[in-house]
Design a protein around this nucleic acid. Structure first.
Length: 207
DNA sequence: GCTGCGATTGACT
DNA sequence: GTCAATCGCAGCT
């Protein structure tokens, strides 16, 4: 059952839309000095590359921020948003192409106490990593881990418990011209309580 | 150099 | 259901 992710088979050379559903059920672990934290992935979203996906950070080409997306697969891409939140992605596609899978939600299956110390003592197990920014906070993933190796000393990914029944829907929180919300690139485990509640993208009001 | 806004969350009505 | 917080990036002047 233990199957550490590697790219020997070229599995991660495929696009994020192909890889994303296969990551559901996988175990993603961060090894820290305070102990390991493991996540069972229950919800992801796929983002494609230059000129392919108007909702992707890489749509307009390579920049300092998204450089890691253009690098080799099986690396971590982190970014900072809304002035306060960190989100984490798994880079896919061969080097030079930019596609990534956003980790939207999961269930903390090891290191629950560590996760709770990051999120707050009142937070229920179900809510610890229910949402992309909650997930990174629970696991203690810092923005500075952008580009980290997912087969390395700090992060590991194990393709275990892969699910057969995959739910799909339009992506959350993505807005803009051209009907971005129509891309059905959100994948989740149906009826799993840790899947984040769907919120349609709402244009922000001015003050 | 300046400005608008985002792959969100938590607090509040 | 509504809304503020908060800051780096990208696009424009």
């Amino acid at each position: 059952m233990f199957r550490p992710a590697s790219n020997e088979s070229g599995f991660f050379d495929r696009t994020s839309v192909e890889v994303a559903p296969a990551l559901l059920g996988a175990r993603f672990t961060r090894h820290s000095s305070l102990g390991d934290v493991s996540l069972r992935i229950t919800e992801v979203e796929a983002y494609l590359g230059v000129g392919e996906d108007p909702g992707s950070h890489s749509f307009r080409g390579r920049t300092a921020r998204n450089a890691v997306m253009f690098g080799p697969p099986l690396h971590l891409y982190t970014y900072f948003t809304y002035g306060m939140h960190v989100c984490a992605n798994i880079v896919c596609s061969p080097e030079g192409q930019a596609s990534a899978v956003l980790l939207r939600a999961g269930e903390i299956v090891a290191g629950v106490e560590y996760a709770r110390s990051n999120r707050g003592e009142q937070v229920t197990n179900r809510d610890l990593a229910r949402g992309p920014a909650r997930l990174t906070k629970a696991m203690g993933i810092p923005l500075s881990d952008d580009g980290a190796d997912l087969m390395g000393a700090v992060y590991t990914l194990e393709l275990v418990d892969q699910v057969q029944d995959v739910g799909t829907s339009v992506r959350t929180g993505v807005s803009g011209p051209g009907g971005l919300a129509e891309y059905p690139w959100r994948f989740f485990i149906p009826d799993d309580p840790t899947v984040s509640p769907y919120r349609a993208s709402v244009p922000r009001r001015r003050t």
